[in-house]
Amino acid sequence: MKGNKAGKKRSNAFCLFLLLCILIILTSGCDRVYKPERPSLEDIEQGSDGLIIEFIEGAPPPDVIEGSLIQAGIIMENKGTSDVKRGYLLLGYEKEYIKLSSWQGKGIDDRITIDIQGKSLALPEGMEDVDIVNLEIMDIGPQREKADTTIYVTVCYDYHTKGHSNVCVDTDVYNLKPREKACNAADVSLSDQGAPVAIKRIESRMIVSKEGGVVRPQFIIHFENVGDGTIIAHGRADIACSAQPLSTDDINVLKVSAVLSDLPLSCKPELLKLRKDSDYTICTLEEGIDETISSYYTPLTITADYGYMQTISKGISIRKIGI
């Protein structure tokens, strides 16, 4: 029994050795494959981030003394694929304790405008911007040794999400044609597109026209807020970053458009008010496709335009002088 087992082990080891030799021989003849260092457009159009904002470490400092001058630094990185043009950065603070002296190079208002390029093939990491604001710490008043307050930074900007997918335009919905179809209409799931609002799923339907002769491709497009901010209506960033009233039409609204190949689709609703964090719209090619044409794949491009608002905050403690 023992002799048999030992013989089997030896045989296994030999097989393994042989396999290794074959692999070495096979791979040694291969040439090195060229791998471009620059990311592809697909690589760039990934992720759930738009603008990322954060305070610079230690600015503002957590503990300050009344009467002192401090700086707060805000780093903004555009990690999405859309450029931020004429966005707003609003500094919120308790005027009781803090007075804004000036922004470095950007005036003395609480609100400044921001322009930050997003990711692209030419700029694969996106742009980064740093804004520094000089703040004056006020007297906290008598009988107090310390007061706590918070600095808020809100950014509001217009953004868009662009999603692409090859979809099947199935002209033989009921499989009546004798020839074999190139494809069948099917649902498509998508990963995030480098923006805080993502197209998550496309459901494809082919509607047969009553009159006959055409099929109308229809796509149910699902959107989701995958960022940690609030979606606002496109073009309302100015209002959002202010104390002005916002209507229900201004919050959680996407303006959706879609193009099938080069044919614009009709989306209903075009202005999509999201229920909760996700919702869908239905885009249809109203003129339809001649059903005599064979089924085929074609690109579907979906665009959502919206605004986005995010807030970060940082608490600071103000101490009295000489305590």
Partner: peptide, 25 residues
Amino acid sequence: QTLSYLRNYFIDRERMQSMIRQDPN
């Protein structure tokens, strides 16, 4: 002498209502 401080937060009513109705969070 004793001092008292009360911090309160104010918002535009329409804005508040819109946010409650429309913002899922």
